[in-house]
Simulated assay, not measured.
Amino acid sequence: MQASYNATLLLDTENSFQPDVTLCTPPRKGGRVWLNKAGYLCGSPEFVVEIASSTASIDLRDKLRVYRRLEVAEYLVWRTEDAEMDWFILEEGQYVKLKADRHGRQRSRIFPGLVLDVAAALAGDKKKVLAALR
């Protein structure tokens, strides 16, 4: 897994975004993202994270549509003003919200071991967030 932070992502000829976090599989291992000559990420990553305050409506409407169309497998929107997180997974061409397990943790289907303790993250409890990853 490769992570990029605030990198410009050229998705197609009409859409370029700057997500807060992009997680992708390296191209040599089947990933669909590469660096172009100008140093921009190109293609469709497996996982995108947006931290949204005033942009939540754009992230949950416009960007969600583009990411879905380009088959981004998982999309997480942290709505800071609402203190909520929406983790979407792509199923049969549609995004559905990923449900937390009985411990309040959400688990990536694409990246095994990527686990989020939602309550701890929203509370800013870094120790519990990291413990969920172990």
Rank of each mutant, 00 (worst) to 15 (best):
K127H: 15
S54L: 09
G124V: 02
K97N: 11
E71D: 11
T8D: 11
A120Y: 07
E84Q: 12
M1R: 12
V72I: 03
A121K: 10
G124H: 02
G30C: 02
P112A: 05
V115N: 03
Y75N: 01
A132C: 00
G93S: 03
Q18M: 13
P45S: 02
V66D: 06
S44F: 00
V77E: 00
R68S: 08
R109S: 12
M1P: 13
T8E: 12
E91T: 08
Q18E: 10
L64W: 06
R109Q: 14
F47G: 04
I110Q: 09
P26C: 05
R68I: 09
A121M: 15
R102C: 12
R79M: 14
L10R: 12
L114F: 14
R68F: 09
G113N: 02
S57A: 12
A100C: 10
C42Q: 02
R68G: 08
A38N: 07
L70M: 12
L9I: 04
A119N: 12
L116H: 06
K99E: 13
A38Y: 10
L114S: 10
V72T: 00
L11W: 06
V49F: 05
A120E: 12
K37L: 15
K128F: 07
Y5H: 14
F88E: 03
L122W: 07
G113P: 02
S4N: 13
V77N: 00
L9R: 01
D125C: 03
K99W: 08
V66S: 06
D20Y: 04
L116C: 11
E81L: 10
F47R: 01
S54D: 14
H103Q: 15
A121P: 15
R134S: 10
E50A: 01
W78A: 11
I89V: 12
P27V: 13
P19H: 05
I58G: 07
D86T: 11
L23Y: 14
S4R: 13
V118A: 10
L98E: 07
D86A: 11
K126A: 15
R65Q: 14
L11N: 03
A132T: 00
T55R: 03
I58M: 08
